[in-house]
Design a protein around this nucleic acid. Structure first.
Length: 416
DNA sequence: TCTGGGGTCCTAGGACCC
DNA sequence: TCTGGGGTCCTAGGACCC
């Protein structure tokens, strides 16, 4: 059977760990720039605050109900997530970390319900984070079981057999099926399909003709046919991306250059941490999609292929700026920019060129020294002159909690 | 006034080959 | 005047997930 372990209101639960007095009050966590609501406590959900809603639209509710607001602290959440995942390994060797707050486990001991309850108890006890467990034959069904678990008292739900699955699916709205997003849900409803059960009974060929193989797999999974295996080996990344929205739009090319340098630098840093090289570099900029006027809407992107795959800060920053030069249009205000690294390969596997051997070796050792110094003396001690990183950031986080678990200076100090 | 960031996979269509 | 059939590979764009 497949167990889906899902942390309840994860980011909010992380913040509450260190602020237990907020346990029963409405709490929300915001995205970068304190822009949107990305995590809500149950109390906040009851107030009608929606996932992804921009904060300024919810201002009234937040103020009137004394909702406690946090900026997102991903370092902290990442650390807590690591602890939860390593704790989960006790229960199964076959553990797939699916996201920062979710994992699939394959367990073949028939005492399913009790094991599920144990997981809930164990994670709460060892990390303080409440989780829900959904158990079923396939990933897609375990997601549905997980939804029920979240609303049940013991936070654990088992779909025992096909008969039971069928009964549950007949009252599951189509939009709650994992793998069917907004677009497919709309399509289904237009075709008279409104529950998971009616979707499950659709003709397989029809789905394949009108949609695609993924939707067909989702349908089959509802029948208990395993299409998505639980895989404990983490797959190598295929792309790396660093992008940010700016608090205020930017129309000045030099400013944009500084940010793109930063993004290229950070992307390259991630690349080097993963022990990878990149072949294809992509840069994009876009204007504010919420602004009304049509002629100012612009999404510019362009990519560059390196002659020899690289993990060199200088090369990546340099070519990012050349790409930016090519896509930048004067007279527009930009809201967001980003750098994407595609076609990654292991650091020691690359097609070299007989023309550039020596230069490369020298540069490699320079790059290593940059990493070494930045690791040793703190982030961003060594940067490139085109960068912006140490200047005042255009990304604001006004309600950031301390880094209780990742910084010596922020460790909780209780006078007992 | 203010609307996130980082991933994956699939498909259609174009370019190219013989 | 008449212009085929069968492939592969790549990319952009669109869907999905958290």
């Amino acid at each position: 059977m497949i167990f889906l372990v899902d942390c309840n209101n994860f980011y909010v639960s992380c913040e509450r760990l260190f602020r237990p007095e907020l346990l029963l009050s409405p709490v929300i966590v915001l995205s970068n720039n304190d822009g949107c609501i990305i995590s809500r406590s149950n109390e906040a959900k009851q107030l009608g605050l929606k996932m992804g809603e921009p904060v300024f639209k919810a201002k009234e509710i937040i103020k009137n109900n004394n909702v406690h607001v946090f900026s997102s602290n991903f370092e902290l959440y990442g650390e807590i997530s690591n602890r939860i995942m390593s704790q989960l390994k006790i229960f199964s060797n076959n553990l797939e970390v699916y996201s920062i707050d979710e994992a699939f486990l394959e367990i073949n001991n028939e005492d399913y319900k009790n094991i599920g309850l144990n997981i809930v108890k164990n994670i709460k006890k060892t990390t303080g984070i409440p989780v829900s467990v959904g158990i079923a034959e396939t990933k897609t069904l375990s997601k549905i079981a997980g939804n029920i678990a979240k609303k049940s008292l013991d936070n654990c739900f088992l779909i025992e057999n096909n008969w039971m699955a069928k009964k549950i699916l007949s009252c599951t709205p189509i939009k709650d099926v994992w793998g069917l997003g907004n677009q497919y849900t709309k399509f289904m409803i237009n075709n008279g399909i409104s529950t998971a059960e009616s979707f499950m009974n659709m003709d397989r060929n029809w789905i394949l003709n009108k949609l695609n193989i993924n939707v067909l797999r989702t349908r089959d999974e509802l029948h208990g046919i395993k299409c998505h295996k639980v895989s404990s080996c983490s797959k190598p990344k295929k792309s790396i991306r660093v992008s940010r929205s700016f608090r205020n739009d930017i129309d000045n090319y030099q400013h944009l250059e500084k940010y793109v340098s930063d993004f290229a630098f950070l992307a390259c840093k991630k690349l080097r941490k993963e022990n990878k090289r990149v072949k294809q570099l992509q840069v994009f900029i876009l204007t504010n999609r919420f602004k009304q006027s049509h002629d100012s809407k612009y999404f510019g992107t362009m990519s560059y292929e390196f002659f020899v795959s690289t993990n060199n800060y200088i090369e990546i920053i340099k070519h990012s700026l050349i790409l930016l030069r090519n896509i930048f249009k004067d007279g527009l205000s930009y809201k967001k920019a980003g750098v994407i690294l595609n076609q990654l390969s292991p650091v020691d596997e690359y097609q070299s060129s007989f023309m550039m051997n020596n230069i490369k070796k020298n540069n490699d050792s320079l790059m290593d020294k940059i990493d070494y110094l930045n690791d040793k003396f703190g982030n961003n001690k060594i940067i490139f002159s085109s960068q912006n990183i140490n200047e005042k950031s255009k990304i604001s986080k006004k309600k950031l909690s301390p880094n209780y678990m990742n910084s010596w200076n922020n460790i909780l100090n209780l006078d007992i």
